[in-house]
Amino acid sequence: MPLTSIAVSMTIGVALLRRLPAVYVVQTGFGLSALSMVWLWLAPGTPLACLALAGAMGLIQGASFTAVAQLNTGATAQAQANGAVAQMGNLGNSLGTPVMAFGLASFGAAALPLLAGGAFVMGLVAHLLLGAARRRRRHVPV
């Protein structure tokens, strides 16, 4: 799965970033990740669904760092935003495992796709709301 994520990020992700703003690629990744979680909920452990999820998450990861440069013009703002993205990854790694373990212990295996799918949907919604706010302010066209 990690190799699939990297491969998708460096191939499909790069091709998409040549044609689309990075935020749109991130939104696509969140949407595809949520759909992959539905697939895994309906067919737990399906190898192709797992690889689809990894590939979709590769779009999120790669395009998020590209979005930093597109959304922040100054070097200081870019450095701070890159640091924030990296720290959110650390926070996700730190909290994700205990939350998933709690969900598994409390509600069984069905909780895992629901929790992860919910997180992906919330990420997509946050990006859509922030994109709408940027368009209203007219600072950034995405």
Results as ranks from 00 to 15, higher is better:
Leu48Asn: 03
Thr66Met: 07
Gly62Lys: 02
Ala52Lys: 03
Gln80Met: 11
Met57Ile: 14
Ala79Leu: 10
Leu91Gln: 05
Ala56Phe: 02
Leu51Val: 15
Leu53Cys: 10
Gly74Asn: 05
Ala86His: 05
Gln70Asp: 08
Ala79Arg: 12
Leu91Asn: 07
Met57Thr: 13
Ala43Asp: 14
Asn90Lys: 05
Thr73Ile: 07
Leu48Gly: 07
Ala81Val: 02
Thr76Leu: 14
Ile60His: 04
Leu42Asp: 07
Thr66Ser: 15
Leu71Ile: 11
Gln80Ala: 13
Gly45Tyr: 08
Phe65Asn: 14
Leu48Ile: 15
Gln87Thr: 15
Ala52Val: 06
Ala67Cys: 06
Val68Ile: 12
Gly45Gln: 11
Ala81His: 05
Thr76Trp: 09
Leu91Cys: 06
Gln80Leu: 12
Thr66Asp: 09
Ala49Asn: 09
Ala69Val: 12
Ala67Val: 00
Asn72Arg: 10
Gly45Asn: 10
Ile60Asp: 01
Gly55Asn: 01
Asn90Trp: 03
Asn72Tyr: 14
Gln87Tyr: 03
Gly55Arg: 05
Gly83Tyr: 05
Gly83Asn: 12
Gln87Ala: 14
Val68Phe: 03
Ala75Ser: 14
Gly45Lys: 09
Pro44Tyr: 08
Cys50Ser: 12
Thr76Gln: 14
Ala67Glu: 10
Ala84Pro: 01
Cys50Asp: 06
Ser64Val: 02
Ala63Gln: 00
Cys50Pro: 01
Leu48Phe: 11
Ala75Gln: 14
Ala54His: 06
Gly58Phe: 01
Leu53Gln: 05
Ala56Arg: 02
Ala49Asp: 08
Gln70Thr: 04
Met88Val: 13
Ala69Thr: 13
Thr46Trp: 15
Ala77Tyr: 01
Ala54Pro: 00
Val85Asn: 09
Gln80Gly: 11
Gly62Ile: 00
Phe65Ile: 14
Gly89Glu: 01
Thr66Tyr: 09
Thr76Val: 13
Asn90Arg: 06
Gln78Lys: 10
Gln87Gly: 00
Gly58Leu: 05
Met88Asp: 01
Ala81Phe: 02
Gln70Trp: 04
Ala81Glu: 03
Thr46Val: 11
Asn82Trp: 01
Gln80Cys: 05
Ala54Arg: 06
Ile60Ala: 02
Ser64His: 03
Pro44Ser: 11
Leu59Val: 08
Gly55Val: 06
Asn82Tyr: 09
Val68Gly: 06
Leu42Gly: 10
Asn90Phe: 02
Gln87Leu: 15
Gly62Tyr: 06
Gln70Lys: 00
Asn72Trp: 08
Gly55His: 01
Cys50Met: 15
Pro47Trp: 15
Gln80Arg: 14
Ala79Tyr: 00
Met57Gly: 02
Thr66Cys: 13
Gly83Arg: 10
Asn82Val: 10
Gln80Asn: 12
Leu59Thr: 04
Gln78Tyr: 00
Met57Lys: 00
Asn90Gln: 11
Ala43Glu: 15
Asn82Lys: 06
Ala86Val: 10
Pro44Ala: 13
Gln70Asn: 01
Ala43Trp: 15
Gly83Pro: 05
Leu42Phe: 08
Gly89Met: 08
Leu51Met: 15
Cys50Glu: 12
Gln80Glu: 12
Ala54Trp: 08
Cys50Thr: 10
Leu51Gly: 02
Ala77Pro: 02
Gly74Arg: 03
Gly62Pro: 03
Phe65Gln: 12
